[in-house]
Nucleic acid binder design. Structure first.
Lengths: 164, 164
DNA sequence: GCTTGACTTCAAGTGCACTTGAAGAACTAG
DNA sequence: CTAGTTCTTCAAGTGCACTTGAAGTCAAGC
């Protein structure tokens, strides 16, 4: 019955073990398993049940790391990844759409940082940080009072999931 | 024995109840109590044990909100607040020192966002996101692999507290 | 053949920043 | 005086992104 048994670790050029992926990405094996559980990455299995990753997974993990530094949650990253085929690079078109979305998020976060920077120099220093109508903490309306729960500071709030 | 009893809520102009502070700052009463437990804010007590806040506490809370949007942890914020007198505004000198520190943190976070922005347009789109030597994920050395634990993305890592 | 190390699952733990709930005391309005 | 709101403490729960540990399997080198 050992007819189509997937070969052992590291012996096949195209497939990587979880340890190899961990080493190459700097992400712990436990995290990789966690990402798989959350549907962010996928692996084939050997006959013995060991994970084997395609090389494309390295890019997928890089994508996850990138998006995390952007400030996205794993759920948001999962949504983005779901549009891409699992085993291959995204198309230019896929990429362009996502790129535009994320670029605008980076823009708004940078805008906030610039506001905070200005506030650092003037608003707080002079004691005007009043909370009532401070344009640093409350741009427009009452964005600083996003309600209870963890406060997100990229894009003000994760879309969907109304607070609490 | 009711000789120097602190008067009731809302009746004294200088002192605020926890509910009033919550309403004015947009921060939940539970969070205010939590901040007090962590030493970030302080309150006097009425004879009955109810909290009474100075008006300066409003500014202190504003300061906390501001620093949170900067991406600082409560511990870091507490360190910063510890240098300031509890009941009054910080001196210009105090402020200038902190301001310089935080400004540089904002600068480095903005620099990272610009890198990510560039990566968004080129590095990932063209498929070069390689993890090994990607200058978007690994500026200089291997900053993306900060080790296990929650990943900080302002200033790369909270100073002190070597990871784990 | 045996040891060592890499892998497996599953449950539970961690750190942060809180929130929620229970049980009760205190203030306020009518 | 009573009802309702606001406050008190304390313990436990939440969500995120994982890590740690236990108990066991699999593969490779000597």
């Amino acid at each position: 019955m050992p007819a189509r048994r997937v070969p052992g670790p590291a012996t096949v050029p195209g497939l990587l073990t979880v340890g190899e992926v961990a080493e190459r990405t700097g992400v712990a094996t436990s995290a990789l398993r966690f990402y798989e559980e959350r549907g962010l990455i996928h692996a084939t299995r050997t006959a013995a049940g060991h994970r084997r990753y395609w090389r494309a997974t390295l890019r997928r993990v890089a994508f996850i790391l990138f998006a995390q530094r952007l400030g996205l949650s794993l759920e948001q990253i999962g949504d983005a990844l779901a549009r891409f085929p699992a085993g291959r690079a995204p198309t230019r078109r896929d990429w362009a759409r996502l790129s535009a979305l994320w670029a605008s998020q980076i823009e708004s976060r940078m805008a906030e940082l610039r506001r905070l920077q200005r506030g650092l120099a003037t608003c707080i220093g002079c004691g005007c940080l009043s909370l009532q109508r401070c344009h640093v903490l409350n741009p427009g309306d009452r964005a600083a009072a996003l309600g209870p729960g963890p406060r997100y500071w990229l894009g003000d709030a994760p879309r969907g999931r109304s607070s609490r």
